[in-house]
Write a protein that binds this DNA or RNA. Sequence first.
RNA 1: GCCCGAGUGGCGGAAUGGCAGACGCGGCGGACUCAAAAUCCGCUGUCCGGAAGGGCGUGUGGGUUCGAAUCCCACCUUGGGCACCA
Length: 943
Amino acid sequence: MAADLPRYRYNAAFADTIEVKWQNHWEANGTFEAPNPAGPLAEPDKVAGRPKLFVLDMFPYPSGAGLHVGHPLGYIGTDVFARYKRMTGYNVLHSLGYDSFGLPAEQHAIATGIHPRVNTESNIANMRRQLRRLGLGHDARRSISTTDEAYYRWTQWIFLQIFGSWYDESQEKARPIADLEAEYASGSRPTPDGRTWSSLSRNEQRKIIDSQRLVYLTEAPVNWCPGLGTILANEEVTAEGRSDIGNFPVFKRNMRQWMMRITAYADRLIDDLDRLDWPEPIKLMQRNWIGRSEGARVRFPSPAGEIEVFTTRPDTLFGATFMVLSPEHPLVDALTTPPQKSAVDGYRAAAAAKKDDERSDDSREKTGVFTGSYATNPVTGQDVPVWVADYVLMGYGTGAIMAVPSGDERDFAFARKYSLPIVATQRPPQEWFDARGIAANIDCSTWPEAYVGDGPYVNSKNASVSLESFTTVAEAKTAMNQWLESQGKGTSAITYKLRDWLFARQRYWGEPFPIVFDDDGNPHAVPDAQLPVLLPELADFKPQGLDPNDAVSEPIPPLARSKEWTTVELDLGDGQRTYRREVNVMPQWAGSCWYELRYLDPTNSQAFVDKDVERYWMGPQGPGHTGGVDLYVGGVEHAVLHLLYSRFWHKVLYDLGHVSSEEPFHRLFNQGYIQAYAYRDMRGQPVPANEVEERDGAYFFEGEEVAREYGKMGKSLKNIVTPDDMYAEYGADTFRLYEMSMGPLEASRPWNTRDVVGMQRFLQRVWRNVVDEDSGATRVTDEPASDDLRRALHKCIDGVGADMDNLRFNTAIAKLIELNNALTPYVTERGSCPREVAEPLAVMLSPLCPHMAEEIWHRIGHKSTITYESFPRADASLLASDTIEIPVQINGKVKYRINVAVGADQAATKAVAMADPKVIELLGGATPKKEVIVPGRLVNFVL
RNA sequence: GCCCGAGUGGCGGAAUGGCAGACGCGGCGGACUCAAAAUCCGCUGUCCGGAAGGGCGUGUGGGUUCGAAUCCCACCUUGGGCACCA
C-alpha cells in the first residue's frame, strides 16, 4: 500500500515533484544560456578564459505523432556530454530547433483544411513539452524553427547569395556574379561566340550570366504526374509507372527546374572529408555518392558519326572488342540496320517500361541486341560490333561504353552469352590461374571470368604506342591518356556520379523563392529590403490536378493560385515595372542546410550570424583545421543527402567570406536506433505488444499464438512506448539513465520496458544513502570515509571521467552503481554517509540524472546549481595498491593466481611464482620449455 | 548482386592481444510480513561430480601467437545502404 511507504521514498511521484521543480528553476534562472562574445547575446566577460564547445543534435521534424522512446536517445547522449563538459570548464552551446517545413503538415492541411502553420505550431509545442520534461540543458533562446519568418528571411538571403555567385574554376571557389560580368565587360574573359560584351543585347548577356550561376534554371528529367499536379520522387512511383497516391499515370520527362550546382564542389566535398573527424563508413558513403572516377573520353568512329564513351580503364582499350549503347542513346536509330530494326525497336520498348533500379539489378541476366553496325576501335583499327543493352544507363557518362570483356565481369558475361570475342590485355599472376585450376595462358577462351588488377600488359601495342613495358594500371592509364590526346582520339577526363541538386517543389509549405521574372522570362533577385518573401494565405493548399493523361501539361503549384501575390510592382533599377513571382517553393533541405549557424546568433536582425560569433563557436581551431561543430550526433540515415547539401551551402558561404569555417560539422557521431518487437496474429494484423505474453519461447496474445518481428517503433505496429509513459511510471532521471545504460551510444538495441526498473532501483539506493526516507533529513556528515571506501571513490572518478570523455555512458553508469553498492553497506552500518563521498557522487551523477543530483546537492547544503561544479579529479595515489593479483597460466590456460608487489619486474614476479607451493605443484618438477612473464599482467609457463 | 556494420549466458550488454561474462534485467533461495507488495541479503555460462575439483565455452571451420571474443583467411546468419557507374 502506498500509504505504508516511507514519505520520502524515491518513486515516480516523488521524481515528478523534484524534476518539475528543477526544470522550472533552471528555466527561471537561465541556467543553460550560453554567452556569446559579440552581437545581441553578447556577455564577453562570461566568455573570457573558457574553452568553447558546440554540441549539436540533428534537426528534428516536429511530427504530429509526437515522440516515442527511440527519438530522445541522441538528445540524452548529447545532453550528458554537454553537462559533463560544463563541469570541466567549457562554455557549452547546446540547443534544439525544429525543421518545420515539409510535406506531412501540408498533407494534413489538405486533408483537414487547417492551415499548416497552425498544425505545425501545435506539433512543436507538444514536442517542446515532451523534451522539456526530459530535463535537457538546452539554451531555449536559441531554439528556432525553419518556418519562423525571421528564420526563413535568412534562408532566402542565403539562397540569393548562391544565386548571386558563380564557380571560378581557376580559383576553385565561388565568387560574386558581378565579378564575372565585370570580366566580360572588360574583355578579360571572352564571350562564348567571341563578340564583344557591349555588342550583346541585355537578354543575350543575361543568358550567358544566368547559365553560370550556382543556382540556375534548366530542363531536368522528372517524374511528372499531371493527375496530382506535381512531380514525384522515385519511391512514390509504383513498378507499373503510376502514382502511389491515386494511381495516376506518371510520365518521365524533362521539365524546367531550379537546380543548385553542387557538382562544382565535387572535388572539395571529397577532398575535405580527409580533414573531418567522421566515422570512416560515412566518409566512404559520401565518396561513393560523389563517385569521382578518373579515366578518359574516347571517340570511336562509326557509320553514324563518332560514338564517344567514357572509360575508367583507357589502358584496356586494346581489349575493347565491342560497344554497348543505352537504349535511349541518340545514335541508336542511325546505327540500326534494316534487318535488325524490329529486334532493336522491340528491345527499346521493353527497356522503356523498366524502372532504373530494375535495370540496375545486378543479379539479373544481361540482355542486349546487335544493331547490325560496326564502329572502329581507335587503337587497334579493328571493327567492333555495336550492341544495345539496358544495363547501360543514359544518365551516366555518355550513355555508351566500350566493352572490355577480359577486364570487366559484366562485359565478360555479356561476351560469353553472345559469343563476342575476348582479348586479354594483361597477364594475370600465376596464383590467379592456380586458384581457378587452369593453366597459365592469355587465351581467354579458357578463363572462367575476367581478370581485374595489375599485371604485365599483353596484346597492347600498335604502330605508335605500346603499353607492354608496364605492369601497373596507373602507369598504363597515364601513357594511354597521353597518346589519345596527342592523336586527337580522346581526352583524359574525370566524371562524377553526383548530379546537380533539383531545388524546386510544386508545394505550398516551404520557403518561397525570393525571385521574380520580367516580361522576357529572366529571373531577378528580390531586393534584400523586401525579404522575407512571405507565403500568401490560401484556402486550399493542394497542387492543381490536371488531365491525368496529358503528359505535356505544366504544373500549377498552390502559390500560382494567389493572383495578387504572384504579380508584383518593383523598381529593380529600370524603373517601376510589373514582375511575376516564382511560384515553386524550396525543398525541406533548404532550412536544414544552415540551422546550426542560426543557433549561434538567433536574434540577429542585421546578419544571419555575426562574424565574430561564428568565428568563436565554429572557427578553425588551428592551422589546417576546418572549423565547424565540435560534436554532431545523429542517425546514419542522413549520411549522404543532408550532410552533403549542408557541406555545400557552408562552402559557398565560406567562399563568399560570410563564415570562417570551411566545414559545418567537424566531428560526427552516429547514434544507433532503439527498435522494438512487434507481434502479428494469424491474419498478419499487429496486436498490442504490451499485452503479449511469452511462454516457453512462444508468444501469445489473448491465448492465441502470435509471430514476433523486430524493427521500428510505430503506431501501425502497435508497439509504441512514449517518453510520457516513462515519466509517469518512473520519472525522467530513470528514463535517461536507462537509455544511456542499455548499451554504447552508437549501437542499435531493442527497447525492453521490463528492464527500466533496474535504473529506478539504483536511484532509490543512491537516494537512501544520502537522505533518510522517513524524515527527509540528510544522512551526510563530515566524518572521513574509510580507506577502502575512499579508494573505491577515486577508482570510480577515474573511470567515469574517461568514459564520459569517450561517450561511453553505459560503462560510466556501471561504475557509479559499483561505487554506490560499496557505499550502501557502509551507510547501513553507520547510519551516516561521508560528505567526501556524497558530494563527488552527486556531481558525477548530475550529467546523467540531473534532477536527483541537483536535489541532493541542495539538501546537503548548497545554494547554487550543481551544473557548473567542477567534475572531481581522481587522486592518483589512491588508485594504486601495494600488491596486484595476476594469473599464472600453464600452456596459456589460467590455473592459479598469485599476488605480487606493484611494479615488480620480471625477475621478482618469477621469484614469487616459483616460490608458491601451488605453482610448484602445477609444474610437477618439470622445467618449463618457455616462460612468458609480463610484469603486472601474467605469468605463463609452457611445459 | 555489390558495399559497410554486427554475431559473447535465458535477455540488454562488459572485456579491443593477457583472469570471458563487469553492471542491469530475469530466475532460484533466504530475511522481514498474518499474508502479499515493496525493500534487503545470497546464488545464478554450461557439462561431469556427493564434494574437492575438473572438462567445455564468445556464429562455423581453418590460421598466426607462449596466449585470440579481440588479429588474418574462408563460410554461415543477421542489420543497414545501394550505384550494372563503365
